[in-house]
Amino acid sequence: MAYNEELVKRIRNAITIFPEDFTEKKMFGGVAFLYQGKMTVGPVKNDLMVRVIGSKMDTFLQQEFVRPMDFTGKPMKEFIFVSPEGFKTEEQLQHWIELGLEHAKSKLK
């Protein structure tokens, strides 16, 4: 399954502003960006996969260009897809990366 290489480049560039170290791992037919072994974000085809803290899922699912991640045919817990219109700007992409990082850090506590 192909994924958007340009989005991978944008994510690599965007995470350079964080003091945290991210790693990359091939997953879901794309590349997942991990923080301390926990998934944060990654491209799946042309969409952006984002991990979200469970208590915030309903809020984000109400936003335009966001839908549940249904990679397996049913929604996956604490995962969303953001369509390309939802991360056109670097500021929008940064927002989603921060959300994914927040989720990863919440799993380390």
Rank of each mutant, 00 (worst) to 15 (best):
D58A: 15
T40C: 15
V52F: 08
D58R: 13
V31D: 00
V52L: 08
M57K: 06
K38P: 02
K56F: 12
V52P: 04
G37F: 04
L34K: 15
V44W: 10
P43I: 04
Y35P: 02
F33T: 01
I53H: 03
L34A: 07
T59D: 14
Q36R: 15
L48V: 03
G29W: 08
V41Y: 05
R51H: 13
T59V: 14
M39F: 13
G42I: 02
Q36M: 10
A32C: 13
G29C: 10
V52E: 07
V50E: 02
M39H: 13
K38C: 03
S55W: 04
L48D: 02
G42M: 01
G54L: 09
K56M: 13
R51V: 01
T40Y: 09
K56P: 07
A32H: 03
K38W: 03
T40S: 14
R51F: 12
Y35N: 11
D47H: 07
K45V: 12
V31F: 00
A32E: 00
L48E: 01
M49S: 12
V44N: 11
M39K: 12
A32W: 04
P43M: 09
F33N: 05
M49R: 13
K38N: 04
S55E: 15
D58G: 10
G54D: 15
F33Y: 13
K56R: 15
Y35E: 01
K45H: 12
G29V: 06
N46G: 08
G42Q: 01
P43R: 06
L34E: 11
T59G: 13
V41H: 04
F33C: 03
Y35C: 07
I53E: 12
K45D: 10
V50I: 06
V52C: 07
L48R: 02
S55C: 05
M39S: 10
G30T: 08
D58F: 04
Q36A: 09
T40E: 08
D47K: 14
P43Y: 10
P43S: 10
A32D: 03
I53S: 05
M39E: 11
I53D: 08
F33I: 02
V52W: 04
K56H: 14
M57A: 06
M57F: 06
